[in-house]
C-alpha cells in the first residue's frame, strides 16, 4: 500500500443537494464515525485532494464549478457520487434546473446510494474508492516504467 492510500485527502462539493447528504458527509468527520482513523483528511483545496465527494444532482450553475474542481485535482484521483441525487438526479430529476447525475459530467468511480446516504455507506464508499485509487496508481506507475 502506497502513502497515497494510507492518508488520502478528500474534497467535498455540494452540487445542489438538499443538505441531507452534506451533513452526513460532515458527520463522518465527527467523533462517532471518525473517518480520520483511515488517515482521511478533509481539505478545501482541490490541488491537495485525492478523493472528490460530490453530493446532489448537477444544476446549470454548478457545471463549470465541478469540471473546474475535477480538472485541478492531481492524478490519480477518484470520484465518489453520494446520494440518490448525485447518482441520477433523484427525486429532483424532473426539475427544470437539474441536469442529472454527476456521471454526465465527470467519470464516477464509486456510487453510494441512499436518500440520504448513511455515514456507514459513505465510509464504505470512500474505502472502496481507496482500492480503486491504488489500482490507478499502479497502472500509472507501469505506464511510466514502460
Amino acid at each position: 500500500m502506497a502513502y497515497i492510500t494510507k492518508s488520502p485527502w478528500i474534497i467535498h462539493y455540494d452540487a445542489s443537494s438538499c443538505n441531507g447528504c452534506d451533513i452526513e458527509v460532515l458527520a463522518c468527520l465527527t467523533p462517532l464515525y471518525d473517518i480520520e482513523r483511515f488517515g482521511i483528511i478533509n481539505t478545501g483545496n482541490p490541488k491537495h485532494a485525492d478523493v472528490f465527494l460530490v453530493t446532489g444532482g448537477v444544476n446549470e450553475q454548478n457545471r463549470p464549478v465541478i469540471k473546474n474542481i475535477y480538472r485541478q485535482m492531481p492524478k490519480p484521483n477518484v470520484v465518489v457520487a453520494i446520494g440518490a441525487c448525485a447518482l441520477s438526479g433523484g427525486v429532483f430529476r424532473e426539475c427544470y434546473n437539474i441536469a442529472g447525475g454527476v456521471d454526465k459530467l465527470i467519470p464516477v468511480d464509486v456510487y453510494v446510494p441512499g436518500c440520504s446516504a448513511k455515514p456507514e455507506a459513505i465510509i464504505d464508499g470512500v474505502v472502496k474508492a481507496l482500492g480503486i485509487l491504488e489500482k490507478k496508481r499502479e497502472a500509472m506507475k507501469k505506464e511510466a516504467g514502460n
Binding site: 455540494d14 445542489s16 444532482g57 444544476n59 450553475q61 454548478n62 429532483f92 426539475c95 427544470y96 434546473n97
Partner: peptide
C-alpha cells in the same frame, strides 16, 4: 444565490 436552485416548486405539476 442560485448555486443550488433546483426549481422544485414546479414539481407540483408532475
Amino acid at each position: 444565490i442560485g448555486y443550488v436552485h433546483r426549481g422544485l416548486e414546479k414539481l407540483v405539476e408532475k
